[in-house]
Design a protein around this nucleic acid. Structure first.
Length: 501
RNA sequence: GCCUCCGUAGCUCAAUUGGCAGAGCAGUUGACUCUUAAUCAAUUGGUUGUAGGUUCGAGUCCUACCGGGGGCACCA
């Protein structure tokens, strides 16, 4: 902390002391607002329409925007809350000398409560004429620049509150994120799903191909993993007879950070007994369209320079055909791993040495197909090697009944007809162990508890996972996951915290 | 982990070839009784991310480190 910001801090602290001396507690316990900014504006509009008299007073709480001081007798300012802002008119002979003395100690960033009647200024803006003024919280540090707000991305993420308080756009983005999640719950609840909660701390981290975070359970003297998916516990609930379940929860993957990845992110998974992946696909396009309509009012959403049309039905294409179309590769001609590696070398596509056939196919797909998948599309029928928890296609046991919805060039989810044959499931785990022994440290581990559950009988079911953060990115036209997370992960700064005193 | 770009006042940004570190906002002082990023006048505020080095002279060049952006790797 340098001298400069100490100066600003001390100046503001001195004002707080002066407020105390004036008998105005700078941090009172209670506020007594009667209306939000938006409610006050609406109230006055109704009164002008003749629905009530125009004289009654309101009391509004909020954060003070920069003061417009017109001499020693008049000050205009806006008061901002989460519903918007309303102008306040401070007139010295109306407010009174004691109120004016308090006002002189206030500035941009302070929280106050203003009581008085509503009126329209000469320029037509609905305004509160301040008859009484109460300090609610004196800010000791200056807010960001009033016009540009925060543009330093590091400050924006480390001190997101500064971004929020100075950017209505940022506030709206996170309000909409919340509305999207509410809309998901409404949709799922409306279809008879029940929301459940399963453990974050697990003995084995399964259900996805990812490295887990580890932690330690002292009381039991055992290692624990933070979950990397919700899948294996939710399927146990199908065994238990809960036919339609979903969970919205944070999952953790010990991986790098980029525009599409944050190590902790939010997933919605659902499992529906007696359904298959085609039923799930129909649900997904309906779900996304419903959310878009509820939150944005349209199923056509802006996306960079273009738009995305989320209106059902979405295109369906098999993974094989997508590869033929965009990569010129028919994987049925390259079932041999060595032959596939040769083709990839010719095409200059990176091939990880420890990758098996399935992972190689996935690399080709990511490299050559995925960037083309801008408009929503379901990519169907994945190689069994990539999908150890999905049911095989009856007419093609090398493939599974699985799809991923792609929008904007990346996948927003994953779904399949759930594998409920315990013998096949055990064999898949064995194959995963082989991959792990070959060096794939993200292969699934044998989960005996889960296998025991399957052996008790799990109904046929369609399962779904949707990455909420990525869905929000698509719906709100945000190119990076960081902008839809309030506090994205950053390297810690123990010695150089920007604003901690 | 590797490559690359960036880091200047509380915030938003300047600074020519290596040649006196500057502006707007915020703050302070003054003027102004209907303003809208109020306006006008004056003014405080800097170890240029940190530590070294080259040089008569470094915000600028070099090295290392810290933090961030982008790319690669990783991530179905």
């Amino acid at each position: 902390m340098n001298e400069r910001s100490d100066d600003l801090f001390e100046q503001r602290r001195a004002k707080a002391e002066r407020l105390r001396a004036l008998g105005a507690d700078p941090y009172p316990i209670r506020a007594h607002g009667t209306h939000t900014a938006a409610q006050a504006l609406a109230l006055f509009a109704r009164r002008e329409a003749g629905e009530a008299d125009t004289g009654a007073t309101v009391s509004v709480c909020g954060r003070l925007r920069p003061l417009r001081i017109m001499g020693k007798k008049v000050i205009f300012a806006h008061l901002e809350d989460s519903t918007g802002e309303i102008q306040v008119y401070f007139k010295r002979d109306v407010l009174g000398e004691s109120g004016w003395a308090v006002l002189e100690q206030l500035e941009y960033g302070d929280f106050i409560e203003v009581r008085g009647p509503l009126f329209r200024t000469k320029t037509g803006e609905i305004t509160i004429e301040a008859h009484a003024l109460t300090v609610l919280a004196k800010a000791l540090r200056p807010p960001p620049e009033k016009w540009h707000g925060i543009s330093d991305v590091e400050l924006k993420f480390r001190q997101r509150y500064l971004d929020l308080l100075s950017s209505a756009e940022t506030r709206l983005r996170f309000q909409r994120r919340s509305q999207i999640i509410s809309a998901i719950r409404r949709f799922m609840d409306g279809r008879g799903f029940i929301e459940v909660e399963t453990p974050v701390l697990q003995s084995e981290a399964g259900g996805a191909a990812a490295r887990p975070f580890t932690t330690y359970f002292n009381a039991l003297d055992e290692q624990r993993y933070l979950r990397i998916s919700l899948e294996l516990h939710l399927k146990r609930l199908l065994v238990g007879g809960l036919d339609r379940v979903y969970e919205i929860g944070r999952i953790f993957r010990n991986e790098g950070v980029d525009a599409l990845h944050n190590p902790e992110f939010t997933m919605m998974e659902s499992y529906q007994a007696y359904a298959d992946y085609l039923d799930v696909a129909a649900m997904v396009e309906q779900l996304v369209a419903t959310i878009a309509h509820d939150v944005l009012g349209s199923t056509v959403v802006p996306h960079g320079e273009t738009t995305l049309d989320l209106t059902p039905p979405w295109r369906r294409v098999t993974m094989r055909n997508a590869l033929i179309e965009h990569a010129g590769l028919d994987f049925e001609d390259y079932r041999d791993e060595a032959r596939l590696r040769g083709w990839m070398a010719e095409q200059r596509i990176h091939a990880a040495p420890e990758a098996g056939w399935g992972k190689l196919i996935d690399e080709v797909f990511s490299e050559r197909v995925q960037p083309h998948l801008q408009q929503p599309v379901f990519v169907m029928d994945y190689p069994v090697e990539l999908s150890p928890l999905a049911k095989r296609k009856p007419d093609d046991p090398g493939l599974v009944e699985r799809f991923e919805p792609f929008v904007g060039g990346f996948e927003i989810g994953n779904a399949y007809s759930e594998l409920n044959d315990p013998i096949d499931q055990r064999e898949r785990f064995v194959a995963q162990l082989a991959a792990r022994n070959r060096g794939d440290d993200e292969a699934e581990l044998m989960d005996e508890d889960f296998l025991t559950a399957l052996e008790h009988g799990m109904p046929p079911a369609g399962g779904l996972g949707i990455g909420i953060d990525r869905l929000v990115m698509i719906l709100l036209n945000e190119p990076t996951i960081r902008e839809v997370l309030l506090f994205p992960q950053l390297r810690g700064r123990a010695s150089q915290r920007p604003h901690d005193a």
